[in-house]
């Protein structure tokens, strides 16, 4: 079942718990990795929004990857990056129009949201339900995020 991470900016308080959860969920050799999710101020109504990969239908990251290291996980719907295949050319980091492919300088890895294999940890830890996860229900209406 394809999952989608639903972001509701109205509910985000900018507590950045999601960021912590993500970093620990993506630890490398016991050290927290770079968070794939970034709660940022929107500049309006003191409102925050967690910026995270949209797993686009026509993803610039995968198109820019010349070694095909970024592919869609058909089960979860996530665009996943295979670090064993990645040659760290930074094409996806530069090409993603939402800045959601990142370079984890500490571990020297290119990283992006993988929906934690279908059960995003960030959603579990979000105290205000600004982040929730639910299966995609095919619909004609275009979702905002």
């Amino acid at each position: 079942m394809k999952q989608r991470l639903i972001v509701t900016p109205d509910l985000c308080t900018g507590c950045r718990t999601c960021e912590l959860a993500c970093a620990f969920a993506h630890s490398v050799k016991g050290k927290p990795g770079r968070s794939r999710i970034y709660p940022l101020p929107t500049g309006k109504h003191e409102m925050w929004t967690p910026v995270v990969c949209l797993h686009c239908d026509d993803p610039a990251c995968a198109k820019s990857c010349l070694v095909d290291a970024i592919t869609r996980n058909e089960e979860t719907g996530a665009m996943e990056l295979d670090n064993d295949k990645c040659v760290k050319c930074m094409a996806c980091v530069a090409a993603c129009p939402f800045g959601c492919s990142l370079h984890d300088a500490q571990h020297d890895l290119v990283v992006k949201c993988d929906l934690c294999g279908g059960d995003p940890v960030c959603a579990h830890f979000c105290p205000t339900k600004a982040l929730t996860c639910r299966p995609v229900i095919p619909t004609r209406r275009k979702a905002v995020v």
Partner: peptide, 11 residues
Amino acid sequence: HRRELSVKMGS
């Protein structure tokens, strides 16, 4: 890019 997205979201 991320900042731009969050600003858009705010709007």
